[in-house]
């Protein structure tokens, strides 16, 4: 059973509907006792990093999620939910994140080193390049297009956490993770067949209780 963390941000409806289509059992809750009964968690989210962390603290979900991850239980962050898995964001000054993965969310500069301006947010369908094609999340998939909407991008020195990347005037970490803490910058629930397959793979990982640390 997948628990979707409801902390008041993000389009919970489309994530839940996607799981329904895949016949993956799920529930939505903001209550940590309830969420603790799940076999895997999804942390969705759109909007502000600062507000999201504020809400996770306010609802006492931050400590719960940290314990969850420390116990090696499966967690999938989507979009802003993925960025929250990292050390922090430069949005609204500096905001500290959950700190499971090394790296920071930084605003797309909107200009290349050569001075050419480009659009921010990075919005639309962009192609994935698999960095870890054997990863469980990428099983039975091929490199294809997925749907992104974000203005901040993860900057990390640690290339080990990159499972798939995309290219938007530089490298965009698109599928990230270490152990069972995983995330997608794009919206799998809006990314047609490839996105749905990724969710399905996460669902399988949750139901099989399979370890990805090998």
């Amino acid at each position: 059973m997948i628990g979707i963390i409801d902390y008041g941000m993000g389009n919970l409806h489309s994530v839940s509907k996607a799981l329904e289509r895949l016949n993956l059992p799920y529930f939505l809750s903001e209550n940590t006792d309830e969420l603790n009964k799940a076999d895997g968690l999804i942390l969705p989210g759109v909007g502000s990093f600062h507000d999201a962390m504020g809400l996770l603290k306010e609802k006492e979900q931050e400590t719960f999620i940290k314990t969850w991850a420390a116990d090696g239980r499966p967690l999938l962050g989507i979009c802003l939910g993925m960025q929250l898995l990292f050390e922090g964001s430069e949005e609204n000054g500096e905001t500290e994140g959950l700190g499971f993965l090394p790296g920071y969310a930084k605003l797309f500069p909107g200009k290349t080193k050569e001075g050419t301006a480009y659009k921010v947010p990075h919005m639309g369908w962009n192609k994935l390049t698999f960095q870890q094609p054997q990863h469980i999340l990428l099983q039975d998939t091929e490199e294809g297009h997925v749907y992104f909407v974000h203005s901040y991008v993860i900057d990390t020195e640690d290339k080990d956490v990159l499972i798939a990347t995309s290219d938007y005037y530089g490298e965009v970490p698109a599928v990230v993770g270490r152990g069972r803490v995983l995330g997608t910058q794009f919206h799998p629930e809006k990314s047609s067949t490839l996105g749905m397959k990724l969710l399905e793979n996460f669902g399988r990982m949750v139901s099989e209780g399979r370890n990805t640390d090998e």
């Binding site: 509907k17 909407v149 919206h187 629930e189 809006k190 047609s192 067949t193």
Partner: peptide, 11 residues
């Protein structure tokens, strides 16, 4: 909107 969101896997 609710119904479309239930079936559509694009934005």
């Amino acid at each position: 909107v609710r119904e479309v969101a239930g079936t559509l896997a694009i934005p």
